[in-house]
Amino acid sequence: MQLSDRITGGALVLLGAAAAWGGSKLPAVPGQDVGPAAFPMLIGFGLIFCGSLIAFGVGRSFEVEEEPQENSGSLMARLGLRVLVPPALLLFYALAVDHLGFLLTAGVMVFLGALALRASVKLALPLAIIAPFFVHLAFYRLLRVPLPEGLLGAPW
């Protein structure tokens, strides 16, 4: 996800403009000069300024160049889609946990996460079965976090 400074700088300018515009629309506090709009507008203008400097390449000389990492292997790795697996699994967790319950959801999450990190099924499967039980024990029993039971309840 290495983007050019023009793109990230431009995005910051847009974000800053949106913040300043959104801020300016906020209602003022009656009888006072400064209200909730002042701070977002100030930040918005700051972002527009910084974003344009970045887009024009000012300050590049301070940066430490990162070594390029080679992407080899499957098409998925080359496209860099693999990095989206963790947020996708979190999304899955948020959507599924109330229906499937913690143990099943966590099991699927660990299994797919391990496979995406090139683990063998021999490692991923036992891990996906054992790890959720320990996490459940720690958070549900010891820390009393109300983890949903769903389809498969824990023995405790």
Partner: peptide, 12 residues
């Protein structure tokens, strides 16, 4: 491959 999925689960 075993540590990172558990970290992810702990994050959730």
């Amino acid at each position: 491959a075993a540590v990172m999925p558990i970290i992810l689960l702990l994050c959730a």
